[in-house]
Write a protein that binds this DNA or RNA. Structure first.
Length: 458
RNA sequence: GGCGUCGUAGCCAAGUGGCUAAGGCAGCGGAUUGCAAAUCCGCCAUCGCGGGUUCGACUCCCGCCGACGCCUCCA
């Protein structure tokens, strides 16, 4: 069956065919490393990870490029405001470079905790200044730029196709404008190169044909994507918020520089909402992977939660839904663990599973197949082999899970032994009292024909 | 103010112009248990409201109500 993906550019579900047979190039917009990533940001990376895993599951070899934006990202897209890196630096009393490194490490650790496969290529914006300058030069040579007192701008009015990705209505935008256009000729124009302020030495600035300064945000992605994947590659993805501005601008730059729309497919992950509003870094308070860990959740419970919804619909986050994901994952894990060693994969269930996942990465329905398979009367060794195969896509790391072996305190073991004796003597009141004590101390009892086992609750 | 998305059981969430509206969690009933826990089996929605199109709509159109997003940095 052919993989179908929803392409935002065409606004429809399209059969996926790679440009080069057998190989797929993906560029995924990475984080701006001025702060930690929140779990809403991370939902997009989980979606991209599923995309990558599905492609590899189908036998493609995937080149997966993710950028690290470590400079030049302004706090306002009116192309005014501060550089987030410089702001973060002042706030923390560290150099912008140190901040970038610290939050890059934190980001990679988050990905790792969510069992997200590491990209085949990481690229940092500050390592690619010459490439960006070269592209700006090309755009200038073709007459699509103009200069203002603070930078070199892309003149969107000269590009008829501008904003097609987002189906932008330029007049409508102008009517509803809430921001000053400033020196920009039109609302949608954006900075390619920003001059360093006269009165302030920036930590991150470079020489260029236009003067000392730094690249605009959008140029880094198109420059690096082209460097690593070519002028037209297979899939570009990111959060849905990038559709109207960032990705529209990347396409505009690429159309002028290379005469391409940069990627064949544009995929967008939808938001995680909390308390009926989206989570956002700039608003201050937000949930991190570490927050979940502090509350004793396994980060993979969050990954499971992400899989229960389709990537193209907003997901409401509540602690209750995380609990539900956490319990479900726990049950799947212990079932998997209890099954006999993997033998043969069941072809029918695996087929049904792939059909779901190939329908625009529908992990929600794929999970329904997982549960049906897990509860089926197939031999447990077959179930194990089949689920193992499915987990190549799900990434729940079931094969490596095992119950936490921990030492039970002596006093608890004594209570368990006393209860065993009491039960032997059919002294039920005493046995129940002892059980209450054990449970009260945070342990669980499992009475089976073979005897009683104890473990920590949770 | 402009543009747009969404509204499915207690919660999260799939889905389709017409077979029994996935799945998970919770809940309920049963099996099991000395009683429980764990486990297993079963049960549990007519799809925000009002119109319309259609032989037939939860699925298409219009209006209303509600929530959310973008137009400011944003996954």
């Amino acid at each position: 069956m052919t993989l179908k993906l929803y392409d935002t550019y065409r606004r429809s579900l399209c059969d996926f065919e790679p440009i080069t047979p057998g190989k797929v190039g993906i560029y995924a917009c990475g984080p701006t490393v001025y702060d930690y990533a929140h779990i809403g940001n991370l939902r997009t990376y989980v979606f991209e990870d599923i995309l990558r895993r599905v492609l590899e599951f189908k036998g493609f070899s995937v080149e997966h490029v993710v950028n690290i934006t470590d400079m030049g990202h302004l706090t306002s897209d009116g192309d005014t405001g501060e550089d987030k890196m410089e702001k973060g630096s002042r706030k923390a009393g560290e150099s912008a470079w140190d901040i970038a490194e610290r939050f890059t490490d934190a980001f990679k650790s988050d990905l790792n905790n969510l069992n997200i496969l590491e990209p085949t290529t990481w690229c940092r914006a500050t390592d690619h200044i010459p490439e960006q300058i070269a592209d700006i030069g090309k755009i200038e040579a073709k007459g699509f730029t103009y200069k203002t007192s603070d930078g070199i701008y892309f003149d969107t009015s000269k590009l008829d196709s501008y904003g097609y990705l987002a189906r932008l209505d330029k007049e409508g935008l102008a009517e509803g404008a809430r921001v000053d256009v400033g020196e920009k000729h039109s609302l949608t124009d954006f900075a390619l190169w920003k001059f360093s302020p006269m009165d302030d030495q920036r930590q991150m600035e470079w020489e260029s044909p236009w003067g000392v300064g730094f690249p605009g945000w959008h140029i880094e992605c198109s420059a690096m994507a082209v460097k690593y994947l070519g002028e037209k590659f297979d899939i570009h993805c990111g959060g849905k918020d990038h559709i109207p501005v960032h990705h529209s601008n990347e396409i505009a730059q690429s159309e002028v520089c290379h005469g391409t729309t940069l990627a064949n497919f544009w995929l967008h992950g939808y938001f995680l909402e909390t308390d009926s509003s989206k989570m956002s870094k700039s608003s201050g308070e937000f949930l991190r992977v570490q927050t979940l860990v502090d509350r004793e959740y396994d980060p993979l419970a969050y990954r499971y939660l992400c899989l229960t919804a389709h990537y193209r619909s907003d997901l409401k986050f509540t602690w209750e839904s995380l609990d539900s994901a956490s319990i479900a994952l726990g049950r799947l894990r212990s079932a998997f663990y209890s099954w006999d060693d993997a033998s043969d994969v069941d072809p029918d269930f695996l087929m049904r599973f792939s059909e779901q996942v190939e329908r625009d990465l529908n992990t929600a329905t794929a999970l329904a197949v997982v549960w049906e398979m897990a509860k089926s009367d197939l031999d447990s060794s077959v179930r194990k082999a089949t689920l193992l195969e499915m987990d190549r896509v799900l990434g729940l790391d079931l094969a490596n899970w095992e119950p936490i072996v921990e030492t039970i305190p002596e006093e608890i073991l004594l209570l368990v032994e006393s209860r065993r004796l009491a039960r032997q003597e059919k002294n039920w009141p005493l046995a129940d009292d002892l059980r209450d004590q054990i449970v009260g101390a945070g342990y669980e009892l499992d009475d089976s024909a073979a005897g009683t086992s104890v473990r920590r609750k949770g």
